[in-house]
Structures are given as C-alpha cells and as structure tokens.
Design a protein around this nucleic acid. Sequence first.
DNA 1: ACCTGAACACCGTTCAAGT
DNA 2: ACCTGAACACCGTTCAAGT
Lengths: 221, 221
Amino acid sequence: MGEGTHRRAGRPSTKVLSRQAITDAALDVIEHGGYDAFTVAKLARALGVAPSALYNHVRSKQDVLLWVQEDLMTKVDVSGFGTEPWAVATRRWALSYRDVFARHAPLVPVIAVMPVAGAPRTLAVYEAVAAGFAEAGWPIGTIVPVVVALESFIFGSALDANAPADIFDTADLAGVSPVFTAAIDAFAGSGGDYTPDAGFDAGLDAMIAGLEARLDRLRND
Amino acid sequence: MGEGTHRRAGRPSTKVLSRQAITDAALDVIEHGGYDAFTVAKLARALGVAPSALYNHVRSKQDVLLWVQEDLMTKVDVSGFGTEPWAVATRRWALSYRDVFARHAPLVPVIAVMPVAGAPRTLAVYEAVAAGFAEAGWPIGTIVPVVVALESFIFGSALDANAPADIFDTADLAGVSPVFTAAIDAFAGSGGDYTPDAGFDAGLDAMIAGLEARLDRLRND
DNA sequence: ACCTGAACACCGTTCAAGT
DNA sequence: ACCTGAACACCGTTCAAGT
C-alpha cells in the first residue's frame, strides 16, 4: 500500500524519513507511551536518527501531529452515507469519529481549529458527510453549521471519554450538593463507577432526534 | 470578599502569595499573553518573587491551572434554574459556559477530566443544574448523562470558537470536494468568513429540542 | 540532499542555604 | 514559614561542519 511498494527489486526501497515513516513512528511512540512520551528526541530514536535530522523533513513537531491527525482520519467510518438512512449514517460516523479521537485526546484541540486546506483525507470525510446530508434533503446552506455542531459534540465527547472513573465522586459532599449527589448515586446504581458512554449515547440520541425533526420540517416546506 | 478583608487595620493585610493572589496573577498573565505566555517564570515575575518561591504554595503548575478553572466557574450563569422554564435556563447556562471557556480553550481538556471533589465552585454549578433538572421533571437517574452530554457539546463548541476564519477555505479544492465546497459557499453567503456561532446555535437548538421531546415523554409515563 | 554533534534559549521543579 | 539562587533534567529548534 505505502509508497515504494511497486519499485523494482534491488533498488533501495524508500526514503527512510518519508512522511509515512515519520507518521508511523510517531503513532508507535504515542501508542507505546502516550502523548507525554511523544518528544522529538523519542521520535528520532524510534527512527534511528539524530533529532536534528528530522528538521530536514519537518518544519516543527506540530507538523508531525498534523500528519498523525490526517492519518487517523482514514479510520473514521463514512460508509453509511449514500447507503443508509441519514440518521443511521450519521450515527455510525459519529461513533467511529469519537472512538478514534478518544484515544488521541491531545489531538482534539488541534483538529478543532485546523484548516481543511492541505488535509485531503480530512476533506474527503467532509465531502462524504456533506454529500450524504445533501442527498438526505438538507438544504445546501444548512449543512455546514449542522456538521460543525455534531463535530463539537463529538470532540467534547472524545475528551470526556478520558475522564477518570471517580470524576463525579462526591464522597463527603452530600451535605453541600444533595441533588447532584443523589443524581450521581441514582445513575451509578449499585456502586458502579462513572462511564462516559451513557452521556455520549444520550447526547447523540437527543441531537439526532432534534436534527431529524428539523429535517422533517425542511422537507415539508 | 477575599480572605483578610475583615482583619484589623494596621495588621499586615494578606499573605502575598495567597491562593487568590496567585490565581489573579495567573489570570492577568493569561489575559495579557495567552496560555503560551503562562509560564512559572512569568507568573513569579508578576507576583514579584523568584519562581522557586511559588513551590511553597503550589505543588505544580497544574495546580494553578485548576485554581484558574475554579475561579472561572463563578462566571457561569445558572440563574435560570429554579426561575425559568427548563429550556430557557439550560440555554442560558450553556451560552455562558461556552463563552467563558471559549476564551480559555487550553483549559477545556483539563476541565473535561477534572474530578469535582475539591472543586466547590464547580460542584455548586452542578448542584444548581441538577436541582433545576430535577424540578423540571427529569427522573433523578437520567440527570447525569444528560448534563454530561450537554457539557461535551459545550466543551467542543468552546474549542471550535477558536477556529480561524479560513478553517473551511477550500480555495483550489472545488474539484476534489464539490458538495462540501458548495455547502461552504452557500453558508458563507456573499464571501463571508466562517463564524462558529451558527454551529453552536444549530447544535444547541437541536439538542435542547431532542431533550425536551424526551422530557415530555418521561412526564407522560 | 541529508546527516551529526554542539549549542541555544528556554521549560518546570528541587534543594541547600539563608532569614 | 517562606524566601533566594544555583542546579537539574529535560524541551524544541538552529546551525556549522561533514559526506
């Protein structure tokens, strides 16, 4: 798949410090030790070169993060658009999008403000989503804000997925916040810890229901 | 208000490096130069002490960020809960919450995973919100996931509010992403830049509509 | 064209020494 | 109890020198 696959045998296969090699090494470092461990020094070591060598191929560490983000975008599932009803396709997209970036939360603030120009895979996702929305009957001028709204929810949920199980542990605070404490207890049931999935499900249900109601109204105009 | 206000005159007023003084200085540095400028050295300089002096009052830089976050929480408007209908109160809360942290986006990943224990102001906000939800008829066990869902949307929107105006500039990409490009053009109207408010409004409308529909169903059970 | 090794200007944090 | 100044172990990045 990668570049260099269909080169002649005997030819030195591929540049050692290709974009793909750097991105793969970065993902390796990140998967191994998280984003704290992702330093230029570690990345260089994983590639077997001196840190300064990287700067022949990359303008900054931030560049590498953008490459990683672009790479992850291929894991987002847009297969529902064009084949499934709008709500089903949107739900599938949202779930996979959130799952991918829940494991890369430090990238979320980066993606949220990254221009799509120069990010072809990200753009391809947007194109598939926009086409699916248009086909489902969303007027062309309504698509961008609705997609942005869903994305905001997805990004926030990806961050929330990293909350510790004790985030809502109100231990000695029942006197100070009785209703909230009761809400926590009622939610957790029999001493269960907090899991963020229930929040994501509730929000996705509500948002899709609200949007579908709007879509119905738009269709009947 | 702050500590030391009701001390006797003539007594040296307040510790120089009180929590309040450190938090205020931090907010000052952040407002002046953003989160990149917020270093321990700059914070110490603003307080007129050596960097190492801070560590008599703070365990880490992260501690100060948590103090700042707690301080900002007092700006979140929960006044609608208990006085206004659920949808109005929720909308007011969401708008102010998003506005406060849109100007402190680097804190968003911090809040999203911060335990409420030891954060009394944050807890006070949750208590007001939970009480408002309960009074509006939300069953006690449904409150936490619904609040988490709204918060996820709010946090994502706070990040999105910092997107550059050219985030969706598809310049030469009309051939590669025709539908998405058309959606951008139709949304931007007459050459207008992207503003994230439309996305926030669309999402908040949809989510509140979806939740209100669910609340109606719950009430009729 | 692309590498190395030294250097630079920072980081946050620790700690002995002072008062 | 709380400060200073020196030191530590890092950061990301630059650049002259090599091939």
